[in-house]
Design a protein around this nucleic acid. Structure first.
Length: 437
DNA sequence: ACGACAACGCATTGCC
DNA sequence: GGCAATGCGA
DNA sequence: GTCGT
């Protein structure tokens, strides 16, 4: 049962025991939600029917939000996401206390094995099947066959127990402080917000989801640099002006509810242009005297435009951040690392558990749509996107754009706070804690 | 009866 | 080597 | 499996 809860939480990344997060233990249909989630896991891991799996999960989610105990099939099928087949199953469960289909699944060796193997992060339905075909039926056996695993899966195996444990709110705060402390020692300063269910006020989180953005002055400086070293100036000049404009927008930005902007101080040190700065695209060169070893690639092709330049910068910046966190013994392992997203593992002693940590690096103009999106909840986002469409906008994790009459999205609107997004689409602002849907 | 069910970043594998 | 497809996660 | 067309 622990296992199934895990699968559920893993999918919903929501909290529990607070507000009305799906399947809080006090919900009157808790047992029904549980068996639906078990069926969801079965469809995912065994039959590999994602849509059925999602349908069961969606049904469980609706049921979790239902205020009273369901008493029969008729009542059940009135709930969104619950149709004929599921209401029949609910009926069976209510009258007999069990489900024949589920009893069978529980005793099925293949099903049991696949579900167990997918406890390992990085092992999905396909890999689990592959391992099972190789004769591996549980985690103990898997530990003897590590040559079959990718790097991600090895880390997942190493911490399989820890990753199933929820993170108490106080510990998320500890981790947050540790990261802030570590990053404050870098020359490049970052704006940071911890999102996910934590930001919605949850007492327990599945992982720590950090969003970072950088101050535009840095981008501007580099753009200038590119401009100087470039033979074709037009594009770069435009890019510079555009960035400068946005920079102004942000510094002018009225107060937002979290004061993000304010704790991101631009010290003179930051502004100082190191003429002799060594830019490298590779090794962050380790030396503690040069934390700011992310780089522009000066030797990049002369036609380098804004996009390619910022891409290069992002990659180096995120690498630099991760490097710093490793140096300070916060990040212990890495699952993946790219231009915009790091996924890995952290631990802040004296805590013994290793925790999943995600870091996303966003361009400043994407920051507020980013924290909105990554704060969730999933259902809240879905609802908000729908309302956005109704109001003539399209909203995603990067920006909000007006929908032209042709159906072609227009240019992204400037956004300097979460509130502004709500305003655009005529929605009353909701505190993060009010977004648990 | 029948298609949609979100879209995407990163790692790995498959293919040329 | 390069690019597409696949798996996985969230 | 459910929903909308």
């Amino acid at each position: 049962h622990v296992l199934l809860n895990f699968a559920y939480y893993k999918m919903s990344s929501s909290d529990s025991g607070h507000r009305k997060g799906p399947s809080a233990k006090d919900n009157p249909n808790y047992d029904l939600c549980e068996f639906l989630m078990e069926l969801s896991a079965y469809e995912r891991n065994v039959t590999r029917n994602t849509f059925k799996s999602n349908a069961y999960r969606s049904a469980a989610s609706s049921l979790a939000a239902y205020p009273t105990r369901v008493t029969g099939a008729k009542e059940a099928s009135s709930i969104k996401g619950i149709g004929k087949r599921i209401s029949e199953k609910i009926e069976e469960f209510l009258s007999t206390g069990k489900l024949k289909k589920l009893e069978k699944i529980r005793t099925d060796d293949t099903s049991t094995a696949l579900t167990e193997l997918t406890r390992v992060s990085g092992v999905g339905p396909a890999k689990a099947r592959q391992l099972y075909d190789a004769g591996i039926t549980n985690i103990m056996e898997l530990k003897k066959r590590t040559e079959l695993l990718t790097h991600h899966q090895l880390i997942g195996l190493k911490y399989v127990e820890d990753f199933e444990k929820k993170i108490p709110r106080a510990e998320v705060q500890t981790i947050e402080r540790a990261i802030r402390g570590s990053l404050s020692n870098m020359k490049q300063q970052y704006n940071m917000t911890v999102c996910g269910s934590y930001r919605r006020g949850s007492e327990r989180s599945g992982d720590v989801d950090v969003l970072l953005t950088y101050d535009n002055v840095e981008v501007e400086r580099k753009t200038v640099k590119l401009e100087e070293s470039s033979s074709s100036l037009t594009k770069e000049t435009n890019a510079k002006n555009e960035v400068a404009k946005k920079r102004k927008d942000i510094s002018d930005g009225s107060s937002d509810e979290e004061n993000h902007n304010k704790d991101n101080i631009n010290t003179k040190k930051n502004r100082k242009l190191k003429a002799d700065q060594k830019y490298t695209t590779s090794s962050p060169s380790g030396s503690s005297s040069d934390n700011k070893s992310y780089a522009t690639n000066e030797s990049s092709s002369p036609s380098a435009n804004k996009e390619s330049a910022s891409k290069t910068n992002h990659r180096a910046m995120l690498q630099s951040v991760v490097h710093q966190l490793q140096k300070d013994n916060i990040v212990t392992d890495q699952l993946s690392l790219g231009d915009t997203k790091f996924m890995g593992v952290c631990r802040v002693p004296p805590e013994e558990c290793y925790r999943r940590l995600d870091i996303r690096l966003l361009a400043p103009e994407h920051y507020y749509c980013g924290i909105l999106y990554f704060t969730g909840s999933d259902l809240f986002n879905k609802d908000m996107r729908t309302q956005a469409l109704a109001a003539g906008f399209t909203l995603n994790e990067y920006n909000i754009r007006p929908m032209g009459s042709t159906g072609v999205p227009g240019e992204p609107l400037h956004v300097n706070s979460e509130l502004e997004v709500f305003d655009y689409i005529g929605m009353k602002y909701k505190q993060p804690s009010e977004r648990n849907m």
